[in-house]
Amino acid sequence: MSETTMTRTHQTATEPQLWDDETLDWLEAEAIYILREVAAQFQRPALLFSGGKDSVCLLRLAEKAFRPARFPFPLVHIDTGHNYPEVIAFRDARAEELGERLIVRSVEDSIRRGTVRLAHPLESRNRHQSVTLLEAIEEFGFDCLIGGARRDEEKARAKERVFSLRDEFGQWDPKAQRPELWNLYNGHTRPGWHVRAFPISNWTELDVWRYIARERLALPSIYFAHERPCVRRGRLLAPVTPLTPPKEGEVVEPVWVRFRTVGDMTCTAPVESRATTVEAIIRETAETMISERGATRLDDQTHEASMEQRKREGYF
């Protein structure tokens, strides 16, 4: 893997311990257990791998769950075509390094097929991923998708089961979730339905960073502080890219930033930061007063229930 797409910077022996091994061991064992339940209970599972930090953790957990065997599922990425190139390069390199199969399906193709219609060419494609995802589910007959969503991310996610049912339209019905008792995850479904499984449901953003530090996991470079042209929109910073040009009257300035989450360019904002190492990020995350989505999502601000609505429509 080339050094430009990866950054490896890690704790030295002299620094104080930034994580508590027992907590991480507990979370890890639970996640491995969930991954193995998926492998055992479904015929055609798949793991959603975006190159983002949560799914990077999922891959390490899958190694721990299944090695020396290969993963009992392929990796799947739904590409909006608006991802940062560093992240896509990282995604491909990581899949190859692991020797696992990566399936990429793109929103671009759905647009060409006419199943996704954009209101205008530069519209955020984030929401439209659901369509492409459902098409991939049908194409491959997936009966379970493993995702890296966490309950601490958002108030609708805080309500979701570890094994979460989706109907033929990929819809989540938050008012009719199945009971989920003990760790007896129930993967039986009606024909045409599928399950979304979330092994790191109980992890917080800080747990993810601590796990990355402990396991020395590589990440796309944009997670670490770098200088980038941005404009300020309210509390948020919007990156200036060919897809997201400045609006009239906006002042473009170089800012030291890092991304807390890497998604579609049109709706993911970076945060101001000088943290160039995982350890520095852990310290910042422990002190931050703004939530991950609050600090980074240009599309969640609009409505009190944006996430729930997207999830009802089949979003991860």
Binding site: R151, K155, A158, K159, P174, N202, E304, A305, E308, Q309
Partner: peptide
């Protein structure tokens, strides 16, 4: 914790919300 649309409409809790916090003594 009452984060669902229907919960906020009706002013009741419908499903379990999970929240995480730590006091330094315990998670």
């Amino acid at each position: 914790t009452d984060g669902l649309i229907a919960e906020r409409e009706q002013g009741i809790t419908i499903d379990v919300a999970y929240r995480y916090f730590s006091t330094g003594r315990r998670n």
